[in-house]
Design a binder for these strands. Sequence first.
DNA 1: TATTAATAATTAATATATTAACTAAAGTAA
DNA 2: TTACTTTAGTTAATATATTAATTATTAATA
Lengths: 144, 144
Amino acid sequence: MAIQDFSQSLPMMLYRALDEILPKFRCIFNEFALTEQQWRILRVLWEHDKITLGRLSDLTLIPSPSLVGIVDRLIKANLIRRERSDTDRRMIFVVATEEGRNLEAKVMPRVNEIYKEIKEPFSKQQWGQLIDGLDQISHLNKKR
Amino acid sequence: MAIQDFSQSLPMMLYRALDEILPKFRCIFNEFALTEQQWRILRVLWEHDKITLGRLSDLTLIPSPSLVGIVDRLIKANLIRRERSDTDRRMIFVVATEEGRNLEAKVMPRVNEIYKEIKEPFSKQQWGQLIDGLDQISHLNKKR
DNA sequence: TATTAATAATTAATATATTAACTAAAGTAA
DNA sequence: TTACTTTAGTTAATATATTAATTATTAATA
């Protein structure tokens, strides 16, 4: 194992972890004709009745230029709608339609099941360390 | 904090970690007119003189349909070349040109510097736990 | 050997990411 | 109020991801 082994570098380890777990979830999303990104948006809307595009971009980690098209397609699928703010006409809220809200009860149990499967082989301590480590990585520039 | 907090889910934590560290590297790649994926291919070619597209796809985690275009662009930039196998005409090897090999000495020091910065705030033990955790995630289906 | 099955790479269609530039609305200060 | 600046969202151009289908070649089997 070389001193600098590309396949063991942090970025590649992160990618490989995602490559392992995402297909499990995408399977479910496809059953509901959702892409992963569309799912992320709905997932956030189930926790927030009304949210601006900017904040939606932050919470889903979807870059705003991408968000435009993804939101368009979710609107076409009748799952969400746009709503321009009255107080600041620059801002646009996104809201789930009834159909969009109804998806939660159908999709979440399936997703939670997979999530539990992924977590299962880890001890509570191991899992905590993993999440803490990732959290520390994602705050590298923010702390002191 | 809800029982199921989307922003603390493993996939989002992984995405956030990547979102934090990748821009640091991409800065460097852009200086050399490389995309991140082009970099990954070169990075692997610096460790392997000659490699098939299939194996390159495995090592870079770039799906093979994407690989076709990325390789095309690297060839156009005179950094690599294709070479069809004589023993099995289905296989195509990819090889770095001299110009491609020369990039290593220019780019690697810069990349290593950033990598060290990222690692720096972690203790050796913390880092090891993080890598181990990620490794375990990426082998979920492979073990026993 | 002729047929069939498997493999490596590619193509096609659609969705998303990246970067820069742009528009409209709001804030700010002379 | 006018000019300058910032902010929220969008558009545009190019690169990559995802999924399914396709081609060329090789392997396998009757």
